[in-house]
Amino acid sequence: MSEHDSAKSRFTSLVQEHFSALYGAARRLTSSPSDAEDLVQDVCLKAFESIDELERIEFRRAWLLKVLYHKFVDRRREISRSPVDQADTGADSFEPEQIARSEIRPDEQLDQDARIAQITRAMGILNKDDCSLLALHDIEGYSLDELQQLTGLNTGTIKSRLYRTRSKLGRLLSSEALQQPILKVVGGKE
């Protein structure tokens, strides 16, 4: 077995069983399958770079999901520097067959898509650790005890941080900028 085959085999044994969960989480956070693939690729690269640590970790899936939410925040911040916010345009997310499969009417689907886009934008503004903690608990379903073992924080601290982060997320969702489409920058004459 070549060195690469050996590395790939080791990586596969640690990550493959969690890959569907990773992709599912990534797909919820992104507007297109290609963005989700980029995100899980970032997570897998980090996992491979940290493979010795990953091998020792008991809560491997939670560790991988935590990395995923960190990478998600990084990517949202990168996008916020871009002249074009792809999450707003939805240019690469239109999938007619998906709408056809849905039981939701197209106008309702658009409302829901806009709502989810607002939520993901707001999540992308959160502190990375706060975002991952909130997501692991509220979205991925990890219990306080599991989060305690994962983070080393006591449950009182975790509860307090969850409350603060939910409040911040709620305030962000009420803020004006998140209700608006792409911000216009230099060059436009008013």
Partner: peptide, 10 residues
């Protein structure tokens, strides 16, 4: 360029 866009509370 001179672009700042996106997800910011205002």
């Amino acid at each position: 360029g001179a672009a700042f866009g996106g997800a910011v509370a205002a």
